[in-house]
Protein backbone atom coordinates (compact mmCIF):
# COMPACT_ATOMS: atom_id res chain seq x y z
CA UNK A 1 0.00 0.00 0.00
CA UNK A 2 1.12 3.51 -0.76
CA UNK A 3 0.06 5.06 2.55
CA UNK A 4 -1.09 3.69 5.87
CA UNK A 5 -4.26 5.65 6.57
CA UNK A 6 -6.80 7.65 4.51
CA UNK A 7 -9.82 9.51 5.90
CA UNK A 8 -12.83 10.02 3.64
CA UNK A 9 -15.30 12.82 4.45
CA UNK A 10 -18.61 10.91 4.31
CA UNK A 11 -21.63 13.01 3.33
CA UNK A 12 -25.23 11.95 3.73
CA UNK A 13 -28.61 13.55 3.05
CA UNK A 14 -31.71 12.28 4.85
CA UNK A 15 -29.70 9.32 6.09
CA UNK A 16 -28.57 8.28 2.58
CA UNK A 17 -24.79 8.20 2.09
CA UNK A 18 -23.75 10.05 -1.10
CA UNK A 19 -22.54 8.05 -4.09
CA UNK A 20 -19.32 10.06 -4.20
CA UNK A 21 -18.52 8.95 -0.64
CA UNK A 22 -18.73 5.30 -1.70
CA UNK A 23 -16.66 5.97 -4.83
CA UNK A 24 -13.91 7.61 -2.74
CA UNK A 25 -13.95 4.70 -0.27
CA UNK A 26 -13.33 2.24 -3.11
CA UNK A 27 -10.31 4.21 -4.32
CA UNK A 28 -8.97 4.78 -0.80
CA UNK A 29 -9.00 1.00 -0.17
CA UNK A 30 -6.65 0.52 -3.14
CA UNK A 31 -4.16 2.98 -1.68
CA UNK A 32 -4.16 2.62 2.10
CA UNK A 33 -3.96 -0.10 4.75
CA UNK A 34 -6.64 1.59 6.83
CA UNK A 35 -9.63 3.55 5.53
CA UNK A 36 -11.80 5.53 7.94
CA UNK A 37 -14.53 8.17 7.60
CA UNK A 38 -15.22 11.56 9.08
CA UNK A 39 -18.91 12.47 9.23
CA UNK A 40 -21.36 14.85 10.87
CA UNK A 41 -23.89 11.98 11.02
CA UNK A 42 -21.73 9.13 12.30
CA UNK A 43 -24.50 6.76 13.39
CA UNK A 44 -26.47 7.26 10.16
CA UNK A 45 -23.55 6.37 7.90
CA UNK A 46 -21.76 3.66 9.95
CA UNK A 47 -23.47 0.63 8.36
CA UNK A 48 -23.14 1.76 4.75
CA UNK A 49 -19.55 3.02 4.93
CA UNK A 50 -18.64 -0.13 6.84
CA UNK A 51 -20.09 -2.23 4.01
CA UNK A 52 -17.85 -0.22 1.68
CA UNK A 53 -14.62 -0.79 3.55
CA UNK A 54 -14.39 1.86 6.28
CA UNK A 55 -13.45 0.41 9.66
CA UNK A 56 -14.15 3.51 11.77
CA UNK A 57 -16.24 6.66 11.65
CA UNK A 58 -14.94 9.78 13.37
CA UNK A 59 -18.13 11.65 14.18
CA UNK A 60 -18.10 15.44 14.38
CA UNK A 61 -20.85 16.26 16.91
CA UNK A 62 -23.02 19.35 17.16
CA UNK A 63 -23.25 20.26 13.46
CA UNK A 64 -27.07 19.95 13.33
CA UNK A 65 -28.47 23.26 12.14
CA UNK A 66 -24.99 24.56 11.31
CA UNK A 67 -22.79 24.53 8.24
CA UNK A 68 -20.29 21.67 8.20
CA UNK A 69 -17.16 23.59 7.14
CA UNK A 70 -15.79 25.18 10.34
CA UNK A 71 -16.57 22.32 12.77
CA UNK A 72 -15.40 19.47 10.55
CA UNK A 73 -12.21 21.30 9.55
CA UNK A 74 -11.58 22.24 13.18
CA UNK A 75 -12.02 18.66 14.40
CA UNK A 76 -9.81 17.16 11.68
CA UNK A 77 -7.09 19.77 12.21
CA UNK A 78 -7.12 19.11 15.96
CA UNK A 79 -6.71 15.36 15.35
CA UNK A 80 -3.84 15.97 12.93
CA UNK A 81 -2.10 18.31 15.36
CA UNK A 82 -2.53 15.73 18.14
CA UNK A 83 -0.76 13.17 15.95
CA UNK A 84 -3.80 10.95 15.39
CA UNK A 85 -4.61 12.15 11.87
CA UNK A 86 -4.36 10.31 8.54
CA UNK A 87 -1.80 10.49 5.70
CA UNK A 88 -4.41 11.76 3.28
CA UNK A 89 -7.95 13.15 3.35
CA UNK A 90 -10.43 12.66 0.48
CA UNK A 91 -13.37 15.04 0.15
CA UNK A 92 -15.99 15.32 -2.60
CA UNK A 93 -16.21 18.36 -4.85
CA UNK A 94 -19.56 19.18 -3.20
CA UNK A 95 -20.92 22.22 -1.38
CA UNK A 96 -19.80 21.00 2.05
CA UNK A 97 -16.69 19.16 0.79
CA UNK A 98 -15.23 22.37 -0.59
CA UNK A 99 -16.11 24.31 2.56
CA UNK A 100 -14.31 21.78 4.76
CA UNK A 101 -11.28 21.57 2.44
CA UNK A 102 -10.83 25.35 2.29
CA UNK A 103 -10.96 25.83 6.06
CA UNK A 104 -8.77 22.77 6.71
CA UNK A 105 -6.17 24.00 4.23
CA UNK A 106 -5.72 27.21 6.22
CA UNK A 107 -5.73 25.48 9.62
CA UNK A 108 -2.98 23.06 8.55
CA UNK A 109 -1.24 25.58 6.26
CA UNK A 110 -1.37 22.80 3.66
CA UNK A 111 -2.52 23.11 0.05
CA UNK A 112 -5.48 21.28 -1.52
CA UNK A 113 -5.30 19.48 -4.85
CA UNK A 114 -8.70 20.12 -6.47
CA UNK A 115 -10.88 18.75 -9.27
CA UNK A 116 -9.20 15.37 -9.01
CA UNK A 117 -10.51 12.57 -11.27
CA UNK A 118 -7.87 10.00 -10.37
CA UNK A 119 -5.23 9.40 -7.72
CA UNK A 120 -1.86 8.26 -9.08
CA UNK A 121 1.12 6.87 -7.17
CA UNK A 122 4.41 8.63 -7.80
CA UNK A 123 7.64 7.84 -5.92
CA UNK A 124 5.75 6.25 -3.06
CA UNK A 125 3.36 9.14 -2.53
CA UNK A 126 -0.08 10.12 -3.77
CA UNK A 127 -0.59 12.51 -6.69
CA UNK A 128 -3.82 14.00 -8.06
CA UNK A 129 -4.81 13.79 -11.73
CA UNK A 130 -6.77 16.85 -12.86
CA UNK A 131 -8.24 17.38 -16.34
CA UNK A 132 -7.85 20.86 -17.83
CA UNK A 133 -8.88 22.56 -21.10
CA UNK A 134 -12.17 20.67 -21.29
CA UNK A 135 -10.53 17.38 -20.47
CA UNK A 136 -8.10 17.38 -23.42
CA UNK A 137 -5.08 17.61 -21.12
CA UNK A 138 -4.30 15.88 -17.83
CA UNK A 139 -2.13 17.44 -15.15
CA UNK A 140 -0.58 15.38 -12.35
CA UNK A 141 0.17 17.28 -9.15
CA UNK A 142 1.83 16.12 -5.96
CA UNK A 143 2.41 17.67 -2.58
CA UNK A 144 5.87 18.87 -1.61
CA UNK A 145 5.38 18.99 2.16
CA UNK A 146 4.58 16.17 4.57
CA UNK A 147 1.28 17.46 5.98
CA UNK A 148 -1.75 15.28 5.29
CA UNK A 149 -2.53 15.32 1.56
CA UNK A 150 -5.91 17.00 0.98
CA UNK A 151 -7.69 15.99 -2.24
CA UNK A 152 -11.02 17.35 -3.52
CA UNK A 153 -12.37 14.63 -5.78
CA UNK A 154 -14.94 15.00 -8.54
CA UNK A 155 -18.08 12.83 -8.46
CA UNK A 156 -18.14 9.68 -10.63
CA UNK A 157 -14.35 9.42 -10.80
CA UNK A 158 -14.31 5.86 -9.44
CA UNK A 159 -16.66 2.87 -9.27
CA UNK A 160 -18.08 2.16 -5.81
CA UNK A 161 -17.61 -1.40 -4.60
CA UNK A 162 -19.04 -3.07 -1.51
CA UNK A 163 -16.78 -5.22 0.63
CA UNK A 164 -19.51 -6.66 2.81
CA UNK A 165 -17.81 -5.39 5.96
CA UNK A 166 -19.74 -4.84 9.17
CA UNK A 167 -20.78 -1.47 10.53
CA UNK A 168 -17.88 0.87 11.20
CA UNK A 169 -17.13 1.74 14.84
CA UNK A 170 -18.33 5.26 15.67
CA UNK A 171 -16.51 7.59 18.04
CA UNK A 172 -16.58 11.37 18.50
CA UNK A 173 -13.81 13.74 17.49
CA UNK A 174 -13.46 16.73 19.76
CA UNK A 175 -14.39 20.05 18.19
CA UNK A 176 -12.29 23.02 19.28
CA UNK A 177 -13.82 26.42 20.04
CA UNK A 178 -14.75 27.85 16.62
CA UNK A 179 -15.14 31.46 17.74
CA UNK A 180 -16.88 33.67 15.18
CA UNK A 181 -16.21 31.23 12.33
CA UNK A 182 -18.97 28.87 13.48
CA UNK A 183 -21.66 31.53 13.78
CA UNK A 184 -23.74 30.77 10.65
CA UNK A 185 -27.04 29.00 11.44
CA UNK A 186 -29.36 27.07 9.11
CA UNK A 187 -32.92 28.23 9.87
CA UNK A 188 -34.83 26.34 7.17
CA UNK A 189 -34.29 23.68 4.52
CA UNK A 190 -36.14 23.66 1.19
CA UNK A 191 -36.33 20.66 -1.10
CA UNK A 192 -37.05 21.54 -4.73
CA UNK A 193 -39.63 19.20 -6.24
CA UNK A 194 -38.16 16.99 -8.90
CA UNK A 195 -40.09 14.70 -11.20
CA UNK A 196 -38.52 11.86 -13.16
CA UNK A 197 -34.99 10.52 -12.75
CA UNK A 198 -32.20 12.65 -11.30
CA UNK A 199 -29.18 13.80 -13.30
CA UNK A 200 -27.01 11.61 -11.08
CA UNK A 201 -28.78 8.35 -11.77
CA UNK A 202 -30.45 8.73 -15.18
CA UNK A 203 -29.55 6.32 -17.96
CA UNK A 204 -30.29 9.07 -20.50
CA UNK A 205 -29.74 12.82 -20.08
CA UNK A 206 -31.13 15.48 -22.44
CA UNK A 207 -29.57 18.94 -22.01
CA UNK A 208 -30.37 22.25 -23.63
CA UNK A 209 -28.22 25.31 -24.26
CA UNK A 210 -28.26 28.81 -25.65
CA UNK A 211 -29.05 27.48 -29.14
CA UNK A 212 -32.64 27.07 -27.92
CA UNK A 213 -32.89 30.83 -28.36
CA UNK A 214 -35.41 31.57 -25.60
CA UNK A 215 -36.45 30.15 -22.27
CA UNK A 216 -39.81 28.81 -23.55
CA UNK A 217 -37.95 26.51 -25.95
CA UNK A 218 -36.63 24.57 -22.96
CA UNK A 219 -40.07 22.87 -23.01
CA UNK A 220 -38.79 20.86 -25.99
CA UNK A 221 -35.91 19.56 -23.87
CA UNK A 222 -38.34 18.61 -21.09
CA UNK A 223 -40.64 16.85 -23.57
CA UNK A 224 -37.81 14.93 -25.21
CA UNK A 225 -36.50 13.94 -21.78
CA UNK A 226 -39.97 12.77 -20.75
CA UNK A 227 -40.44 10.65 -23.86
CA UNK A 228 -37.09 8.92 -23.20
CA UNK A 229 -37.48 8.59 -19.42
CA UNK A 230 -34.46 10.86 -19.24
CA UNK A 231 -33.31 13.59 -16.85
CA UNK A 232 -33.33 17.14 -18.26
CA UNK A 233 -30.12 19.16 -17.92
CA UNK A 234 -28.72 22.50 -19.02
CA UNK A 235 -25.56 24.35 -19.95
CA UNK A 236 -24.25 27.06 -17.67
CA UNK A 237 -25.20 29.73 -20.23
CA UNK A 238 -28.94 29.19 -19.80
CA UNK A 239 -28.70 28.68 -16.05
CA UNK A 240 -26.91 32.03 -15.81
CA UNK A 241 -29.62 33.51 -18.02
CA UNK A 242 -32.22 32.34 -15.49
CA UNK A 243 -34.11 29.95 -17.81
CA UNK A 244 -33.73 26.95 -15.49
CA UNK A 245 -32.56 26.51 -11.88
CA UNK A 246 -28.93 25.84 -10.99
CA UNK A 247 -29.82 22.25 -10.08
CA UNK A 248 -30.13 21.53 -13.84
CA UNK A 249 -26.57 22.61 -14.62
CA UNK A 250 -24.22 20.04 -16.15
CA UNK A 251 -20.56 20.99 -16.25
CA UNK A 252 -17.54 22.00 -14.29
CA UNK A 253 -19.61 24.12 -11.93
CA UNK A 254 -22.68 21.92 -11.89
CA UNK A 255 -23.22 18.18 -11.99
CA UNK A 256 -20.85 15.68 -13.55
CA UNK A 257 -22.93 13.12 -15.45
CA UNK A 258 -21.93 9.83 -17.05
CA UNK A 259 -25.14 8.39 -18.49
CA UNK A 260 -25.42 5.71 -21.15
CA UNK A 261 -26.70 8.35 -23.61
CA UNK A 262 -26.24 12.13 -23.46
CA UNK A 263 -28.16 14.33 -25.87
CA UNK A 264 -26.91 17.93 -26.20
CA UNK A 265 -29.44 20.21 -27.89
CA UNK A 266 -28.27 23.68 -28.89
CA UNK A 267 -25.13 23.41 -26.78
CA UNK A 268 -21.90 24.62 -28.36
CA UNK A 269 -19.69 22.69 -25.96
CA UNK A 270 -17.67 25.20 -23.95
CA UNK A 271 -14.90 23.67 -21.83
CA UNK A 272 -17.10 24.34 -18.80
CA UNK A 273 -19.77 21.99 -20.22
CA UNK A 274 -17.55 19.31 -21.78
CA UNK A 275 -15.87 18.57 -18.44
CA UNK A 276 -19.23 17.61 -16.99
CA UNK A 277 -20.45 15.23 -19.70
CA UNK A 278 -17.64 13.88 -21.88
CA UNK A 279 -17.47 10.73 -19.78
CA UNK A 280 -20.93 9.74 -21.10
CA UNK A 281 -20.93 6.42 -22.93
CA UNK A 282 -22.70 7.71 -26.05
CA UNK A 283 -23.10 11.36 -27.04
CA UNK A 284 -25.58 12.83 -29.52
CA UNK A 285 -25.27 16.53 -30.42
CA UNK A 286 -27.65 18.78 -32.32
CA UNK A 287 -26.29 22.23 -33.15
CA UNK A 288 -26.48 24.77 -35.97
CA UNK A 289 -22.77 25.56 -36.04
CA UNK A 290 -20.73 22.79 -37.71
CA UNK A 291 -17.61 24.15 -35.96
CA UNK A 292 -19.10 23.81 -32.45
CA UNK A 293 -16.70 21.96 -30.10
CA UNK A 294 -19.54 19.67 -28.96
CA UNK A 295 -19.16 17.79 -32.27
CA UNK A 296 -15.60 16.82 -31.34
CA UNK A 297 -16.95 14.54 -28.59
CA UNK A 298 -20.17 13.43 -30.34
CA UNK A 299 -20.74 9.88 -31.60
CA UNK A 300 -23.62 11.24 -33.67
CA UNK A 301 -23.79 14.91 -34.62
CA UNK A 302 -26.70 16.57 -36.42
CA UNK A 303 -25.75 19.93 -37.89
CA UNK A 304 -29.11 21.66 -37.83
CA UNK A 305 -31.55 23.93 -36.05
CA UNK A 306 -32.85 22.47 -32.78
CA UNK A 307 -36.20 24.18 -33.46
CA UNK A 308 -36.61 21.97 -36.55
CA UNK A 309 -34.98 18.74 -35.35
CA UNK A 310 -36.41 18.47 -31.83
CA UNK A 311 -40.16 18.70 -32.67
CA UNK A 312 -39.79 15.97 -35.31
CA UNK A 313 -37.72 13.84 -32.95
CA UNK A 314 -40.27 14.20 -30.15
CA UNK A 315 -43.11 13.33 -32.53
CA UNK A 316 -41.27 10.28 -33.90
CA UNK A 317 -40.59 8.99 -30.38
CA UNK A 318 -44.18 9.54 -29.28
CA UNK A 319 -45.44 7.61 -32.32
CA UNK A 320 -43.37 4.56 -31.54
Amino acid sequence: MTVSKIWVFAEAADGKVSNTTLEMLAKARELADTVECVSTAGNDVAAVVGANGATAVHNVPGVDGKLAGPAVAGAIAAAVQAGSGPDAIFLATSYDGRDVAGRLSVKLDAPVITNVVDIAERDGSLAGVEPIFGGTTNVVTKFTASTPDIFLIRPKSFAAEETGGGAAAVSDLSVPDLGATGAAVVTNRFVEEQTGPSLDDADVVVSGGRGLGESDSFDMVEQLAKSLGAAPGASRAIVDAGWVPYSYQVGQTGKVVKPNVYIAAGISGATQHLVGMKGSKHIIAINKDPEAPIFSVADLGIVGDVHKVLPKLIEALQNR
Partner: peptide
Amino acid sequence: GTIVEDDGEGFQKVV
Protein backbone atom coordinates in the same frame (compact mmCIF):
# COMPACT_ATOMS: atom_id res chain seq x y z
CA GLY B 1 -18.22 10.21 -34.57
CA THR B 2 -20.58 10.58 -37.52
CA ILE B 3 -21.54 14.17 -38.25
CA VAL B 4 -24.41 14.77 -40.69
CA GLU B 5 -26.12 17.88 -42.05
CA ASP B 6 -29.85 18.03 -41.23
CA ASP B 7 -31.78 17.66 -44.49
CA GLY B 8 -35.13 17.53 -42.71
CA GLU B 9 -34.62 13.86 -41.82
CA GLY B 10 -31.82 14.34 -39.27
CA PHE B 11 -34.19 13.33 -36.47
CA GLN B 12 -34.43 9.85 -38.03
CA LYS B 13 -30.67 9.36 -37.55
CA VAL B 14 -31.15 10.08 -33.84
CA VAL B 15 -34.10 7.66 -33.64
